[in-house]
Amino acid sequence: MKKILLIAIVSVFLSQGFSQVGVNLDLEAWTTSGTYDEPDGWQTLNGLSLFGVPITVTKNTTSPAGGAASADLTTSLCTACPGFGLDTNLFGLIAQEIPVTELATTMDFDWKYTPVGSDSAAVFAEFTHYDTGIGDRVTDAVGFAILGANSTWMMETVAFFPLTTDVPDTLTIYATSSSGGLFGSPVAEIGSVLSVDNFRVNFPTTSLEEEYALGANVFTREGNLVVTLEEPTNATISVVDMTGKTVVRHSFNGDRDILDTRSVSSGVYVVNVQSNNGYAVTKKIFIR
């Protein structure tokens, strides 16, 4: 019940309107609101500070993953929360709704995490559409990552698992400093801090501009995954299976890279090639 109440509060904030597409996914833009900073385009629970709820999302300009800022989400003691039917251990949470017209294959983001006790963090995303027949939203695909202790910035890739064949109209992204707030366990621990930055949603149809600029070609040959680029560049390759697990991640500098995939189980995988200049190409392949 407490989880439902908290998600309901966030849903009210989200329903106040997002007509824009993917606002401030790099968490660079923040607006000061009273005594706290709020990430533009994202919703938090900071607005409840008027009722004694602690600030759980803060701007980090000291050590962002990239650019000038990132977001720190902190699980905090909330003595006012029982009045809302919530636990006193309130996790940090950011959420954003993005209008879409198709299903993405993966979502990348940068993160680091300092948990307390056995706590874990989570990033969860779902594609939905409004079904006029039932008068409610239907979930079309989901993807999530459960995050453990990690003191340095790293990139995570989340794969989406289709649940319907319908066309989604909304992507909702959640990030929380304690995964129990979304999934019920483990217990949120006061002091756990999740830092997030640079969310990137990868759709299956690469733009002609990106395809031309990166010129990536991905194929398999004799147990190897081969990636070739039009021009030499610094790039990172991520291979994600259909459960959302990243099975291979490798960075290289050049116009060609070969990854040994003989130890990888046969199946369909999503390959994301991300260059340091911001271009990305996402392709699905079958590894035998």
Rank of each mutant, 00 (worst) to 15 (best):
A188M: 03
F127S: 10
G223L: 07
S178I: 06
T56A: 05
V23M: 03
D87C: 14
L45E: 07
K245C: 11
T56S: 08
T261P: 12
F219H: 15
S275T: 11
F84K: 00
W111Y: 04
G34W: 13
L171I: 11
Y279D: 14
T61I: 09
A216I: 08
D255Y: 11
D119G: 01
G148S: 06
F286C: 14
L182H: 09
V273E: 10
Q43A: 11
N276A: 11
L48D: 13
Q16N: 06
V123G: 05
V281A: 15
I134Y: 00
A175N: 00
E126K: 15
S265A: 12
T157A: 08
F109S: 09
D131V: 01
T101Y: 05
F18H: 07
V247W: 10
K112Y: 13
E97A: 06
T205K: 12
L229Q: 08
Q43D: 13
V270H: 09
N150M: 05
S177Q: 01
S120H: 13
Q20L: 06
V21R: 03
L5N: 05
W111H: 08
N224A: 02
F286M: 14
K3C: 02
P99Y: 11
L27D: 00
V138M: 12
A8T: 14
T132V: 06
W111R: 05
V281P: 13
Q16F: 04
Y212I: 12
V10Q: 10
G148V: 07
S179M: 09
L208R: 06
G254I: 09
P232N: 05
A95K: 01
V271I: 03
A71V: 02
I94K: 14
L77H: 10
N46D: 07
V247L: 07
G191W: 07
T233V: 09
L103D: 09
I55S: 06
A159E: 00
F109R: 15
T106F: 00
G66Y: 08
D119W: 01
S275Y: 10
D255P: 15
I237P: 12
T236Y: 03
V270Q: 10
H250D: 04
G52A: 04
L14N: 00
S207L: 13
M1L: 13
S76I: 04
M107E: 06
T79S: 12
A95Q: 12
P186S: 04
P115M: 12
I134F: 00
G267V: 12
F91E: 15
D108R: 15
F161I: 06
D136I: 02
K283S: 13
I98V: 14
D260W: 06
R200M: 09
T243V: 01
T246E: 13
A122E: 10
T79R: 03
D37S: 08
D131E: 03
V273P: 03
A104Q: 11
V273R: 05
V281H: 11
G135W: 00
K112N: 10
E189F: 05
N24H: 04
L45P: 11
G92E: 14
T132A: 09
P115G: 07
S266M: 03
D166K: 04
F183H: 00
I55H: 10
T261L: 14
D169T: 03
L6Y: 11
D87W: 15
V158T: 01
